[in-house]
Amino acid sequence: MNQMTLIESMVKERAVDIRKQKDGENYVEVPDFRPGDTVNVAVRVVEGEKERIQNFKGIVIGRHGSGVSATFRVRKVSNGVGVERVFPLYSPMLQGIELVRKGDVRRAKLYYLRGMSERKIRQKLS
């Protein structure tokens, strides 16, 4: 099993290297964040030949998995419609994850936020 951990870390390093290569000086490390935190995820969007950055800002409502395959789920309300996206934590398609605000919650999965109004969510997270 020891060897597996080693391979996992090698694979992870390689994923980080791809991002370092893409971003050069602009490379930012994956921050330490928890469910309940508000994050701003910069996603690379490829349109034909061109590549641009799209931001997705919202509340982290869960983290899943471990190692390189880990993902996290971000929820935001856009034009009155709730939108959720799942991002692979080490995907080279992410340009960076910025921690905007720390939240204070006791649960690991915040699926109950889906049925709540924005005002209530704000009360809950602070």
């Binding site: 390689r14 994923a15 791809i18 490829v46 390189v68 395959s69 692979p88 080490y90 995907s91 080279p92």
Partner: peptide, 8 residues
């Protein structure tokens, strides 16, 4: 495990 290619 999983690995990533350059185009994500």
């Amino acid at each position: 495990t999983s690995i990533y290619t350059d185009n994500g």
